[in-house]
Structure formats: C-alpha cells, structure tokens
Design a protein around this nucleic acid. Structure first.
Lengths: 127, 127
DNA sequence: CTGTATCCGCGAGGATACTG
DNA sequence: CAGTATCCTCGCGGATACAG
C-alpha cells in the first residue's frame, strides 16, 4: 500500500457533482468542442467524424462520443457495427449555442487575453 | 527513446491557440472556478484562500493562482513572501459573470442532464 | 466500418519538506 | 506567512491490434 493515496478534497467533492462542473468537465475534453461542432449541421457517420476531426485517433473518438452520449448531448448507437450515425440531441444543440456565447466572449476579450500573458511573462522575467 | 512519442494532432494545434480554448482551459482546472469565486467579494490573502478552498494543497493553490494570473484574471504578487493579496482583475470580474451564465444554463437543464445519464447507464446495462 | 481491448507517455493534481 | 523544490499517482489522450 502506497503512502500516496489520492484523497478526495472535501471542498471539491460537492462541487464535482454540480451541474456546472459536469458541463465544464465535458467541454474541457480535448476534442469535445470540435466533435460537437462537427455534428452541428446534421448527423454524421463515425468515419465522417474521424475525417473531419483531423488527427483524432480511433479510440479517442469513441471515448469522446461515449462521454458526450453519457451526458446527453449526442445520440447514436451503443452497439452494432455497420454504418451508424451520431448527431446532436436537443440538449446538444442548446450546448453548441452556449459554446457560441463563450466563444463570443472569449474573442471579444482577445486583446486583454494576449496582453495579459505578455505582461505575465515579462514580470516573471524581470523577477 | 520510446516508440511512443506524443504527436501533435493537426486539427487541434490550431484550436488549442484559440481564445475559446484558452478560456475553457482555465475554467477546466479542478479548483479554478472555486478560486475565482472565493475572490469575488474582494482581495484575499493566500492563507485565507487556502482556508476557503477546503482541501486544496499548498502547491496546487500556488499553481492555480499562477495560471489565473498568467491568463490575466487575477492580480497578486509574483515574488516576496509576507502578507500578500490576490484579487480579481477587471477581466476576472467579467469572467466570473460569464461563469454565472454557464452555471445558470447548467442548472436550467439539470433535469435533462441527470436523466440523460440514467438512460445511458440503463442502455449500456441492457446491452 | 465500427467496436473492444491493451499498452503506454505524460501532465495535472497532490503530499511534504525546506527557506526566509 | 508564503514561495520553491521534489517526489508520487492517476487518468486522459494516443497507438495498435483484432473481432464482427
């Protein structure tokens, strides 16, 4: 038994189960946003998605889709090979709209964001 | 030399530098949201923050604060011990407002979110 | 074409000790 | 009180192989 057991922080245990944390959690996946937007214009086959998400591996696409299905943003087959389709649920369409708002906010503040990073690097360098 | 070198996916390289990805990245930190909200009512000392964020470790609080400073959401000292204060920048205040909107959306859809997970588990179990 | 099963690297989150 | 430096663990993203 290792001395280093991951302890569940008291403060975060409750937060992690909050709807906000769930949504932020799924959006933080490396390919989640791209995957959602790849389905925005309609349902897509697995290999269509793999072509659109340039560079994603087979397994990671499966994992990403399953995670999005689990949270209810995407519908699609859970078993059976062959041609199958994945698409946005109503909740998924709504989430893409929310992503749009976050993107708009982010791009509105792009100048401050890049400026802040420059200032930080400079201040650190000056030390 | 390992055969397993992490390759930078073509499709994501461009996305990762997008303002949206930067914002989602900082929001996805395990303690970022809690830290930001802990400073919402005013600047706080390091140890005040550590007490408010119940269960956070010393190092992780430092890392979290530095990341938020790097992105321009938090101001505070970069060196020198002693009593120091961390607080939200204007950009940080704005970000907390955005978080509020995301939280509102998430809680508006809480029923669908929990329902979706139940359905998913059930469908998987059924096979 | 798609799903499942391994195996692996690496970075984030965490514990702990030392410094002024 | 707060900053820096290690060391550790665990899970995500990824590569690859095989089955229907």
């Amino acid at each position: 038994m290792s001395r280093y057991r991951k302890r569940v922080a008291p403060g975060i245990a409750s937060f992690a189960e909050t709807p906000l944390a769930r949504v932020l959690g799924t959006l933080s996946g490396r390919w989640s946003v791209l995957a959602l937007e790849a389905m925005h214009e309609g349902a897509r086959h697995f290999n269509e998605l793999q072509r659109r998400l340039d560079g994603i591996s087979h397994k990671v696409l499966v994992d990403t889709l399953r995670a999005l299905q689990r949270e209810g943003f995407v519908f699609g087959p859970l078993t059976s090979p062959g041609l199958s389709e994945y698409g946005l649920t109503l909740l998924g369409v709504d989430l893409v709209a929310l992503i749009g708002e976050i993107r708009a906010w982010s791009e509105d503040h792009r100048p401050e964001l890049v400026d802040a990073r420059d200032c930080f690097e400079e201040a650190r360098a000056a030390g």
